[in-house]
Amino acid sequence: MADFIQLLIGGVSMGILYGVVAIGFVLLWQTSQTINFAQGEFVMVPMFLMVALHIVLKIPFWPAFILMLVGSAILGYLFERLMVRKLLPGGVLVIVIATLGLSGFLRYGIQIAWTPQTLFFPPLFSTEPIRLSGITFSPEDIWNIVFISVIIVVLHLCIKRTKLGMAMQAVAQGRETAELMGINVRHIIILVFVLNSVLAGTAALFAAPIFFVRYDIGIFLGVKAFVAAIIGGFNQIRGALVGGLTVGLAETFAAAYITTAYRDAFVMILLFIVLLIKPEGMVGIKEEAY
């Protein structure tokens, strides 16, 4: 039982990270039908940015974090401005191929420009394990869960309650109608791209001490976030979160109770199972346009 609870906490802490990255994925898809196969690299690049600012340049933590988020935002803005805007009329496949190219460009760019080695990032919180009636867990996991949950709740409230959030929903439901209602669709779409990369940057901060900082970390993060979005339901923010948690828990428990050898493959098998049984995702809504 103690083992089970420890794994549960570890799995949720992992899953909620995947969830945040997946939420960005879903937001992009809903508002602009953009599939970003470089999503994992949008987490990897801020990781390196954080190392550069905080560890190499020795800028204090908070200013470094804010600068890193600004960097992420610029990345998201340029992504929309220079690539997506021109590619969207060509259809989804064109975006898929181009973002695969972007992911390679960022990945090998970091490898060449900086290092092919793994960099370490100091833990954000105490890693001294806490013992509570026989259960041992790391405060790092708990803080990750708390902080990311707060971020997700705030994001949710912003989308549901603020004018800007409602404008985003309107664009997601129908671009033309939103335009007729006086919403500046272009601005909203840029906003969503910036929001996505800022979310990814935030995830990077929490992910850096856990996964360590490596140029090829983005592949698995990106694929898992994509899988999370699909198995949760591609058309819902809630779905992305559920999907992320499912992925995190499934891989943690499978590694503990079945075998560690196929740790990263379990998620893929899970993808096939969900696609077979409930293709619209666990909490998703059926829609025609796959």
Binding site: K86, L87, V94, A98, G101, L102, S103, F105, Y108, G109
Partner: peptide, 12 residues
Amino acid sequence: IVYSLMLILVML
């Protein structure tokens, strides 16, 4: 890097 960039440029 070069080929990844070419992938983007060809699509663009």
